[in-house]
Amino acid sequence: MTPPVLLIAYGNPLRGDDGLAAAIASEVSRTLPEETVEILTTVQLLPEHAPSVADRRLVIFVDARAGEKPGTVNLSPVSYPDEAGGGAALTHHFRPAHLLGLASLFGRVPRALLLTVGASEFGYGGPVSASLRSALAAAAGIVAGLSR
């Protein structure tokens, strides 16, 4: 049976703090059973993720966010179309709202949230900055709370 919650953690683990979402997903997978939440880690969002998004109770997108104070955890609702418009870009500029738009082709559009963690080191290599460990744990806790 398909788990009611889908966690989509996106970012490139080879680019420093951009791997934060994958690290959060890894933490969540240790604390929650598979039948509760399905975890999808990906370097970037793709239109082809849309069928997996449709018909869930909740979809949680997790991303590292440049331009915000490192360690700041934010949770915000996602809807389509969003403030940036319906959207035209694919691949590297594909946003959670775009995915919700396409999910309507495959079933019911779920409630969706975007969890971001401010980060600043996006150079080549890993791992995630040690200074973000507490934020990582806090974010994983929020995801776990939402998923139960």
Binding site: G87, A88, A89, L90, T91, H92, H93
Partner: peptide, 9 residues
């Protein structure tokens, strides 16, 4: 190996 920017570039 890069992006497909669909009319938003």
């Amino acid at each position: 190996c890069s992006t497909h920017a669909s009319d938003q570039m």
